[in-house]
Design a protein around this nucleic acid. Structure first.
Length: 274
DNA sequence: ATGGTAACCTGCGGGC
DNA sequence: TGCCCGCAGGTTACCA
């Protein structure tokens, strides 16, 4: 489900709900979500007694910072966090429960069970997988025109494949890649190394602008995304191509087309994007 | 180096 | 109504 803007919105809402609360117990109902430590019981023991100090984000990962440890959490397609009174009945797809010291519970819900959680000693998470594999976020100072152009020069993959590659720029997924390329006027199947310096800069600016605008709108809700307070996003009102196949392009009226690129459903305007 | 495919899972909508 | 297929906001492993 979530790409950078949705994860950022979750971060902001979740922060209000759990900051300074202490974990008194943890229940893991689906073991495969826990990646580190390998044993769910060890994961539980690491967390008991820890207080939430801060919640950060890098790319599509949430980073829950405790006293001595950090928990790195990826929501993949359908993961959601919510805070509920302990007495509230469990939903169907709740897989990890963090009991808090004020009588509430932080619950992780994930229909497809794709999400992941890793625990590291505090401060070590940034140098280890999975965070160590990430490139800069789009609005980071290090995502410069030179950096991006040089990375694109090194590959013959399509620009869509490159924008989906989290090691080059972190946080864009299928929706924001399609929207970015529309705004930049670049065809998703163009080879990255054949784009002009000017086009690369247009793509970079479009990525930054799209992601920042989407954060401001609280993310995009297509099917199921809600933040940690159960609210939907508003950016779907500003989509130009994603999910718009056969609808007229908002700029030129040409029907939006849907093709496969990099094995992902890809939406674009054949007139506006060359 | 890159592309295709399957895998990890569940649910939904369309076609028959 | 029921069944089968393809599809879904992600990522990784493996095989051409």
């Amino acid at each position: 489900m979530p790409e950078l803007p949705e994860v950022e919105t979750v971060r902001q809402t979740l922060r209000q709900l759990v900051l300074n609360k202490k974990i008194t117990d943890v229940t893991v109902l689906w073991d495969n979500i826990i990646k580190l430590p390998l044993e769910p019981e060890a994961f539980r023991q690491e967390l008991i007694g820890q207080t939430v100090q801060e919640i950060n984000r890098k790319g599509k990962f949430l980073i829950l910072e405790f006293d001595d440890i950090s928990m790195v959490s990826h929501l993949r397609m359908e993961g959601k966090y919510g805070v509920y009174p302990a007495a509230e009945p469990m939903k169907k797809h709740t897989h990890v429960i963090f009991q808090l010291d004020d009588g509430t519970e932080l619950r992780y819900n994930d229909v497809r069970k794709f999400g992941t959680m890793h625990i590291f000693k505090k401060g070590k998470e940034i140098n280890q997988k999975p965070l160590s594999l990430l490139g800069p976020d789009p609005f980071d100072d290090s995502f410069t025109a030179d950096y991006f152009y040089n990375r694109l020069q090194k590959t013959q993959r399509t620009i869509k494949a490159v924008l989906l590659d989290q090691s080059i720029v972190a946080g864009l997924g299928n929706i924001y890649v399609d929207e970015t390329l529309f705004r930049a006027g670049v065809h998703p199947e163009r080879k990255a190394n054949l784009l002009s310096r000017k086009q690369v800069e247009k793509v970079r600016q479009a990525a930054i602008e799209t992601i920042e605008e989407a954060i401001q709108q609280g993310g995009t809700t297509i099917r199921s995304y809600v933040n940690s307070q159960g609210q939907i996003g508003m950016f779907q009102q500003r989509l130009f191509v994603y999910g718009k196949e056969e609808e007229p392009c908002k700029y030129c009226g040409t029907p939006i087309e849907k093709i496969k690129v990099s094995n992902r459903g890809t939406h674009y305007c054949r007139n506006c994007q060359q």
